[in-house]
Design a protein around this nucleic acid. Structure first.
Length: 285
DNA sequence: GCCCAGGGATGCG
DNA sequence: CGCATCCATGGG
């Protein structure tokens, strides 16, 4: 993908592999707003505007390097998309793969964002047994009430700010029974060693996360994928269950078995494949 | 009133 | 172990 950086913007040559709607509305991130034909994106205490101008895609921001990394601009997604199909054919022989081509085409502009791990972690703790609209609302409330005022928006709360939020205050934000999970996860973050964690292998990371109350198998996979860019995972939620029953083996009902099957098929591209399939399944009708 | 949403903890066998 | 049940909340 061709792009250039200036002081206050990244300019991307129009390209199938970058589509703001696909990237932001595929369920990987919750802090964005569509305003007219622009998307506003928020990450930690930073902000960017994404829009088209003179047949080019513009990412306007005061921190160009941060959003170059955030949007994963140096990764070749055309290659990833073809590899997904290739490994499917190799590892799931004689199966119809038309659905996979359709899904990849439907969300062809998706990219996996390099989110802040704390933000991803807490967002996906909120996400359990919840819907995307309400997750967005709750995350926004958290930022407005406890994050730093940045002028035209609020930052995601820092660890210090999070540690002051009480169980009751989480409940007041509409978290329901997840309120106590948030307290537990923030407590864990208080002694979290980032370097030690990222040095672990995939299974060890999973085991560590599952040790925290409020983080189960699906949320742990989301945290590894969206917070730590660990691609050999496959978060299985209600939508992926539908995908599995429709296009894979409809005799399986155990989510753990589905996860293993899908990781075995898509291997190091599993995390990417999951996003195309999730987006397609949720919005195709 | 019922079902569903990017599920997880708990208890019971 | 596997499993059923309960857990807040809001929209359709």
């Amino acid at each position: 993908m061709k792009y250039t950086k200036e002081k206050d913007r990244i300019i991307i040559e129009k390209c199938e592999d970058f589509n703001a709607e696909h990237i932001l509305e595929c369920g990987q991130v919750f802090r964005y707003k569509k305003v007219g034909n622009k998307y506003l994106v928020f990450s930690t205490n930073k902000c960017a505007e994404v829009f088209e101008e003179n047949d080019k895609i513009i990412i306007k921001t005061s921190d160009v390097d941060y959003f170059e990394n955030y949007f994963d601009l140096t990764t070749d997604y055309a290659n990833i998309k073809s590899e997904i199909v290739k490994v499917f054919k190799q590892n799931y022989k004689d199966k119809d793969f038309k659905f996979l081509l359709k899904a990849i085409d439907y969300g062809k502009g998706i990219r996996i964002l390099k989110q802040n791990f704390m933000e991803a972690m807490l967002s996906f703790v909120i996400s359990q047994n919840n819907n995307i609209k309400r997750i967005q609302l709750i995350v926004e409330r958290m930022c407005e009430r406890y994050g730093t005022n940045m002028g035209s928006y609020y930052a995601f709360p820092t660890l210090e700010q999070l540690e002051k939020i009480t169980l009751n205050e989480y409940s007041e934000m509409g978290l329901g029974y997840r309120a106590s999970y948030m307290v537990e996860v923030v407590k864990m973050l208080g002694s979290f060693d980032y370097d030690k964690f990222t040095a672990l292998n995939s299974d060890e990371k999973l085991k560590f996360l599952l040790n925290t109350k409020g983080i189960g198998p699906k949320v742990a996979d989301c945290i590894m994928l969206f917070g730590f860019y660990e691609m050999k995972v496959f978060p299985v939620d209600t939508w992926i269950v539908k995908v599995f029953n429709e296009y894979f083996d409809n005799k399986v009902s155990d989510r753990k078995v589905m996860r293993k099957t899908l990781v075995d098929i898509f291997d190091i591209y599993a995390g990417y494949a999951q996003q195309y399939l999730f987006y397609y399944q949720r919005l195709k009708n």
